[in-house]
Design a protein around this nucleic acid. Structure first.
Length: 874
RNA sequence: GGAGACGUAGCUCAGUCGGUUAGAGCGCUCGCUUCACAUGCGAGAGGUCUAGGGUUCGAGUCCCUACGCCUCCACCA
């Protein structure tokens, strides 16, 4: 096979993925000989389309799992999707609306039928998109939060928690979305700052002409007022104990109560208490045994308790009530108010606090061990700072409202006997009442919060509640990769669920990444229309380019800006890899490749092998720390700068020369290094590397199943490395002089060198000639041996003299030397200052002091030479 | 109100345990049709590391204060 002249990913990505899948490369086996390494995917919603957030999340996971797989672990990346209760239900309702149908029209069974059909049709879409990215998920284990296995786990957990008294049902104030018509958990409410008003209304004290003025932001809820509260310390309201107020408009009598909750400074210091529609008022109501009067319907309209406002929308009612209060003289004043208003995280409709009967998980006993697990580092967050956010939430967590008034989801396994009223909680369907034997049984209408099932994901997907081989081998999982926006919804709940039901943490590490923003730093959103479709990028640039641009140089946990420039940079790197590989493979054609140990290594060979070894080490260490951005940046630098810009250039004099033996040896080293490069790059860039691997001589099987390079600890080529560094410096210096003086780069010059270390330069003489455009290198003792006009350059350990004839501008040269001298003087001052400092000599590490001494000597030497040069010129 | 980040080149960002002459990519300037690659090669310019104080032999890095910008949590009607 021959490599195509240009990098064209669309020609091979699909085929390679199919091959991997066909050959079972993604399948993880329970293998006692190997250590397991497990990642469960954060299950994307079945309603979802792949977006950049997914692309980042999946790329990180795929990179890790491929790395571990190549390191010899039995690596399982377990994929699946989430039924996304609210999000999906909203879509089905929308779809039905187009046909003029409502949920009521089709009924529960009819609705679920449609939902399942919808899931069959669209649920797999995102899976196909994940494949385009190159995700090496074990598709044979594909799960779904509502499949049989996960549903069984949900029932098991519900019953367990209920039996332990950790699930209860009761009338509590919850967040109600009037649009979705369901309860929401606290985490599902987003607060948005809004401008509103504070209305001051006076309530008459019964049998007097006195009034108490209350301040409220929601006048329409006054019909639900069952008291007015004041602070017991408030002197303004002394002696009102036991007095009764007349609620305006409805003329209902309500008591005055004293409660610490009331702030003295805010408003008038008197608060109307509406237990049914405010969480704080609800608490006050409990403390003072106040009745709970609801005034809102589930759709956000006023109910019959609002008298003649019944049926009106809350906001409309607000205006009308204020008007009426004005008419009857109960209105005092209005003030602007800036406050936060809760909105539904799915439909963004304003959320109403409403009292209703819901199911709750008691959080305190569950949160405690989950906090300990993170505190004791059984679960580690990367970056570490996110554990603080976790603690902050967990330590103040309230009971979790888990019932939703929806149909798409896990129906709550509570059964009510219509004959005797008995409630039975059961994993199995209940047909006969265990108490009275009655057969009129009705299951609870509500379903569970989506996050209730996702909380079980790390073990429900592995077989729980059955203790399967998979569960024993792959649990606990190793790392969970997700965005910081989902720590409360999901990460926290998985941690306490794993501890509670498996008696073990669900994962050892949590790798948190940031958001992918647009080039201006804005969140990508539908409303802004600034979203980028990853599949379009893959179609245009290929998956590897996308993966590279998402990972390279990005620090864990921080947001990133995504831009065309970034993509182009990534694409250019793919092109670089492609062409460097082509160069190596074209030169290797027909050559016998020697094992590296049979090659007589040149200094350049030793240098690149040393650099390679260092890169293997850096990449490995950074991968272990989940610093994928740093690891990939290391590789980028090594491949482009060291391998392409220097080493490949070093090989050219040999490859284009006559020496057959040397050519064979050089090609062998090139192949050796390229082989390591594509292995190192493979976790990040699976397609291009696999494609190159296909073209490598003497390979079989897949690159993705090959072994990840290991680094040597004993290797010592320090002499060669320092020689090559000197050679590089000489080449750069000559190039610099040519550029500065305007000499054509192609103009061959004779290079005179004065040095005590000729061996270094002799070893690299062919490189200097080729890469610096030098015809001859001559060693001299002193500049005085030269009669031509020259430019001299001081480098570490040597002085270079470059004759350029009439081209030399001596004034500029003097200026340059002066500047250089200034630089060196600064360094000498810095170094000598350090070395004169007793504290530094005493306390700094010895190696560092020694290093500083060497530097000092070097700069002194340079100063001497520069001064001499300056003298020669003036 | 509570918490957490961030502030480094024109732009986007790295900078690991406190120790290098503070780095990269893009952009910019100059030069190059060098036989893998112009999606390239070579050479450059560009920095008071937001400001001030402290700890230290030594601070871009640790601590404090201020300013600027961002995010999360809480939710006083």
């Amino acid at each position: 096979m021959e490599m195509a002249k240009t990098y064209n990913p669309s020609e091979f990505e699909k085929e390679i993925y199919e091959d991997w899948e066909k050959q079972g490369c993604f399948k993880a086996k329970v293998d006692a000989e190997k250590l397991p390494f497990t990642i469960v995917i954060p299950p994307p919603n079945i309603t979802g389309q792949l977006h950049m957030g997914h692309a980042l999340d999946e790329t990180l996971q795929d990179t890790l799992i491929r790395f571990k797989r190549m390191q010899g672990y039995s690596a399982l990346w377990l994929p699946g999707t989430d039924h996304a209760s609210i999000a999906t239900e909203v879509k089905i309702v929308e779809q039905m609306a187009k046909e003029g149908l409502t949920k009521k029209d089709v009924g529960r069974d009819g609705f679920l039928e449609r939902a399942w059909a919808w899931k069959e049709k669209y649920g797999g879409r995102i899976i196909e998109q994940l494949k385009l990215l190159g995700s090496s998920c074990d598709w044979s284990r594909l799960s779904f939060t509502m499949d049989e296995r996960c549903s069984r786990a949900v029932k098991e957990v519900f019953v367990n928690l209920y039996d332990k008294g950790l699930i209860y049902r009761g009338d509590r104030i919850i967040n109600w979305c009037p649009d979705c018509k369901t309860a929401l958990s606290d985490a599902e409410v987003e607060y948005v700052e809004e401008d509103s008003h504070l209305w001051y209304i006076r309530y008459q004290i019964k049998d007097t002409d006195d009034y108490i003025t209350v301040a409220t932001s929601r006048p329409e809820t006054m019909f639900g007022d069952t008291a007015v509260a004041v602070n017991p310390k408030d002197k303004r309201y002394k002696g009102l104990e036991g007095k009764t107020l007349i609620l305006p408009i409805v003329n209902k009598e309500i008591p005055i109560v004293y409660d610490d909750y009331v702030e003295l400074e805010f408003g008038t210091g008197a608060v109307k208490i509406t237990p049914a529609h405010d969480p704080n008022d609800f608490e006050v109501g409990l403390r003072h045994n106040l009745p709970v009067v609801k005034v809102l319907n589930d759709d956000g309209t006023m109910n019959d308790n609002a008298g003649h406002y019944s049926g009106m929308k809350a906001l409309e009612c607000r205006e009308k009530v204020v008007e009426e209060l004005k008419e009857i003289g109960a209105f005092v004043k209005i003030e602007p108010l800036h406050h936060n208003v809760g909105h539904c995280y799915r439909c963004h409709h304003t959320v109403e606090p409403i009292v209703s009967k819901q199911w709750f998980v008691k959080m305190e006993p569950l949160a405690k061990p989950a906090i300990d697990a993170v505190r004791k580092k059984s679960v580690k967050f990367t970056p570490e700072r996110f554990s603080k956010i976790y603690f902050n939430w967990m330590e103040n967590v309230k009971d979790w409202c888990i019932s939703r008034q929806l149909w798409w989801g896990h129906r709550i396994p509570a059964y009510y006997c219509e004959d005797c009223g008995e409630m039975t909680i059961s994993k199995e369907d209940v047909k006969v009442c265990p108490k009275c034997g009655g057969t009129h049984i009705k299951q609870d209408e509500d379903v569970l919060d989506t996050w209730f099932s996702s909380a079980l994901w790390p073990f429900s997907t592995l077989g729980y509640p059955e203790i399967t081989e998979d569960l024993k081998y792959f649990y606990p999982t190793d790392v969970l990769v997700t965005g910081y926006d989902i720590i409360f919804f999901w990460v926290a709940r998985m941690i306490f669920s794993g501890i509670e039901h498996m008696q073990r943490i669900p994962f050892k590490n949590v790798l948190i990444h940031g958001l992918v923003r647009d080039s201006q730093g804005r969140k990508m959103s539908k409303s802004l229309g600034n979203g980028i479709d990853p599949t379009e990028i893959i179609a245009k640039y290929g998956a590897d380019t996308l993966r590279f641009s998402l990972i390279n140089g990005v620090a864990a946990g921080s947001d990133m800006r995504f831009s065309d420039e970034k993509l182009e940079g990534a694409r250019n790197f793919m092109n670089k890899i492609w062409n460097a590989s082509r160069f190596v493979l074209l030169n290797a054609e027909g050559k016998k490749i020697l094992p590296i140990k049979d090659v007589k290594l040149t200094v350049a060979d030793k240098w690149i092998i040393t650099r390679l070894n260092k890169t293997v080490k850096d990449v490995t260490i950074n991968m272990e720390k989940y610093e994928m951005g740093v690891a990939l940046a290391n590789l980028y630098d090594f491949v482009w700068s060291d391998f392409c810009d220097w080493y490949i250039e070093f090989t050219k004099p040999v490859l284009y020369g006559e020496d057959e033996v040397k050519t064979t040896e050089t090609v062998s080293v090139l192949i050796y290094v390229l082989d390591k490069i594509i292995k190192l790059l493979h976790p990040f860039l699976p397609f291009i590397t696999e494609q190159i691997y296909k073209n490598m001589p003497e390979t079989n099987g897949f690159l993705m199943l090959s072994e990840f390079p290991k680094y040597e600890t004993k290797q010592n080529y320090s002499v060669a490395v320092s020689e090559i560094e000197t050679v590089k410096e000489i080449i750069k210096t000559v190039r610099n002089v040519k550029a500065k003086t305007g000499a054509a780069p192609s103009k061959k010059i004779t290079l005179y060198v004065s040095t005590e270390k000729q061996s270094a330069i002799k070893a690299g003489i062919s490189y200097i000639k080729k890469l610096a455009g030098v015809s001859e290198v001559k060693f001299i003792k002193d500049k005085s041996e030269l009669t031509e006009k020259i430019i001299s350059q001081v480098i570490d350990k040597a002085e270079l003299y470059i004759p350029l004839g009439e081209l030399v501008d001596f004034d500029k040269e003097i200026e340059r030397i002066k500047k250089e001298l200034e630089n060196v003087e600064n360094e000498i001052a810095r170094a000598s200052g350090k070395l004169a400092n007793k504290g530094f000599l005493d306390k700094a590490p010895k190696a560092l002091v020694e290093q500083e001494r060497l530097k000092y000597d070097k700069f002194i030497d340079m100063r001497e030479k520069l001064n001499k040069q300056l003298k020669d010129l003036t």
